[in-house]
Each structure stands twice: as C-alpha cells, then as structure tokens.
C-alpha cells in the first residue's frame, strides 16, 4: 500500500445546502481537527500524513478498500487506539487530555451491534444511557423505538429480533444519546431500503442541527453534501 493518502473534498459543497440547514455561519469553525495522522496495524503502516478538519454541520465519508484502515481510523478518532503519529483535537484540545469530556460528546457505533441479546430494546436503551450517567425519559425512548419500526417489540429480548431490527435498535440509540459527534462504522449494513432512508434522513437531520458525523461505507452515500476522504 502506498504511503500517501490525502484528505480531499469531493468537489461538492462542504456544507449542507442552505434550504435544509438551521446552521449559523459562526458555527462553521472546525471543532474536530486531525493532523498528520498515521496508523499502524501489526508491522504494517496503514496510512500516514492524514489530516482533515470538520466543523459543525459537516459530515465526512471515509472511503477505501477492505483492509485500508477505515475501522482503524475510526477507532483512533474515538480514542480506542493510539495512532502511531499525529494528533486529534476536539475543540482545540488533544482528545487524550480531554478524556471524559470528549467521550461525553461522542457516539461511536462499531461493527458489532453493541446491544445485549438478553435484554429488551427498551432495557438496552435505558441501561446504555444509565451507564453514561444519564436517565432516559420513557416516553422519549418509546417514541424513538416506534420511529424505527420497533413498535410491539419493545419488551422482546433482542435475541428474538432479526439482524436488521437489531440495527434499528441502534438507530434509536442515535436519537436518544444526544451527542454532537457521531462516528459510525458501516452503519448501512444489514438495513433494508426503508431503514437506509431513515438512517440517512437521521444523519442529515443531525448534521443540519449543527452536529458532526463521520462514517465509513462501501456504497455511495444516499445523503447530499459531505466531505470525502479516501484511504
């Protein structure tokens, strides 16, 4: 694998079109900035010299072949792994130093479902929030589950749900978690057409409200706008 990978805009407007945004111009200063990042897996250098900035209201599509280091990049961005070189700053501070403050504003969804099979969707959402030190309003939680077509399955252990329905529980978590930065690894897998639409609408909505999103996907993004980066 070659050693040069550059962040580049995809030639599309960086921000969401004005008709969909409630964003103020003052919010466009970048809050997440990555500079000169290099990641290594085992002895192999996946990428180096990677840098990009992301401002509220922007989303980033991380593209690349299998094994090019997309997941590694996302794990470094959320602080699960240490990059070999480079720095990741959130609101001007390195994320290592921010620690809990950064994690407060972060929602990461990895390859795995991150839902407990033995618990019901409702319990999953409630307990996940409780572990973050917050309490969830029951009505709000139920509304989120219903929005993603899980009506009637709130009290059924997740074990009995299909793979797509499990992913939908995660979509409900996106709504209830209330974090400005979303880092999503392959969020569109195992979703049917309807759910793909729901998720892309959700991301657009999040971004339009001044949130940030970083996601990996093999497919073309079903949402407009966004920066792109190729590994």
């Amino acid at each position: 694998m070659a050693d040069f990978f550059a962040a580049r805009g995809a030639g599309r407007p960086d921000r969401i079109p004005p008709n969909s945004g409630t964003m103020q111009p003052s919010m466009s200063a970048s809050v997440l900035s990555v500079s000169d990042l290099a990641c290594v897996r085992g002895e192999r250098r996946l990428f180096s010299g990677l840098g990009f900035d992301l401002a509220p209201g922007e989303w980033l599509h991380v593209q690349g072949e299998n094994g090019s280091g997309k997941t590694t990049l996302l794990r470094a961005l959320v602080g699960l792994s240490h990059p070999a070189e480079g720095e990741i700053r959130w609101r001007g501070e390195p994320i290592r130093q921010l620690g809990e403050e950064y994690r407060q504003e972060l929602l990461y969804l990895g390859h795995h479902g991150a839902v407990k099979e033995e618990l019901t969707p409702l319990e999953n959402l409630r307990l996940a929030a409780a572990l973050d030190g917050r309490t969830l309003d029951d009505r709000e939680t139920l509304a989120a589950l219903h929005r993603f077509g899980l009506k009637g399955r709130e009290e059924l252990p997740v074990r009995f749900l299909s793979a797509g329905q499990k992913r939908r529980v995660l979509l409900a978590r996106l709504v209830t978690r209330n974090a400005p930065l979303w880092v999503l690894d392959e969020p569109f897998t195992a979703l049917d057409v309807k759910a793909v639409d729901m998720l892309s609408a959700l991301i657009s909505e999040h971004v339009a409200q001044g949130g940030l999103a970083i996601l990996t996907s093999h497919q073309a993004m079903p949402m407009p706008g966004g920066k792109a980066i190729v590994l």
Partner: peptide
C-alpha cells in the same frame, strides 16, 4: 467483548474503573 458493548463501556463518559 463479542457483542461490542465493551467498546461502549470504554467510550462511556463514566470512568471505566467504576464500570
């Protein structure tokens, strides 16, 4: 670890030691 919830615990704003 297998279902990915451990990652969520590590990334939770609550100190991991407590969890």
């Amino acid at each position: 670890h297998a279902d990915g919830t451990l990652e969520q615990l590590v990334l939770s704003p609550t100190p991991l030691g407590l969890l």
